[in-house]
Amino acid sequence: MSVLARRDRALTPEETEALLRDRLGDGIIGSTLAHRMFTVHVAPSAWVDTFTRCRDEPLLDFDLFDTLHGVDAREDGFDVVAILYSTSTGNRLCLRTRCEGGRDTPVCPSLNDVYRGANWMERETWDMFGIEFPGHPALEPRILTVENFEGWPLRKDFHLASRVAKPWPGVKEPAELDEDGNVIERVPGIGDAPGPYVLDEAMAAQAIALRQVSAAIDAAAGNEAAVASAEPTVSDATMPEASAPASGTAASTDPAAAADAARTADEQRRAQAEARARKAAERAADETPEEQA
């Protein structure tokens, strides 16, 4: 195999940058070498020229178009990152540019004429970030999302719909922290976080009805302690039941209102958890003397 034999031809990152600077001048803004990846930052005006050079310059010979994607760069707008690989030297190069036009109208020149593979990659980047690629034959129709989808899903200001309508079902929230920077913990229960679907509401109602039935059975058996602990749970659970469908419908219309609703539901849930813990402690305290007697 000839692939490894030509490794000695490979340029070092410094030499690569020097060569690109020599050919493109001010188009090359700078470079970073971190986490075993060499990145060259390119001005948008020199974006296409850089790739043409990388492909055609015999010393570089980047022939494999690996990937191209967007990255949200907060208030500065969006970055476009492309990665090239050379099968003859074994070098990898990451090229990065900041789109012109800020967050409102991000624009990046198209690489479609340099590498065939850029076609779909740029369509995907437009679909996900709304970055326009002048020179691309046809960014539309949307490649991954449905044709009539509105919004740019991978922008950070596009919120994950399922997370607005319904909090994380696990105990620890992975993506958010509370005001003090602590991990948010919740005690999940059946029917606590009904989703935006009719079935979820039905399941929540069923869970509450079941609890009432079991409380009634306990009462009939004459277990007074069980009745005392079950009754508050029932009233606790009916409260969010009344407000939950409202939060579900609000989510589909207004995201801000839905977020508010989610927050109030959150507080209710935390209060519930505290109440439940208090009840459990009381019950434990009640039961111990009986056993001793």
Binding site: M1, V3, L64, F65, T87, G90, R92, Y115, G117
Partner: peptide, 26 residues
């Protein structure tokens, strides 16, 4: 060359006669 320009890798690239496999090259 078309395969590389498109970013085709794996068995489809090896079939063209180029032994570009990450397990060997990187």
């Amino acid at each position: 060359d078309v395969a590389l320009s498109l970013g085709v890798t794996g068995p489809a690239l090896h079939a063209t006669g180029l032994a570009e496999d990450s397990r060997v090259t990187e």
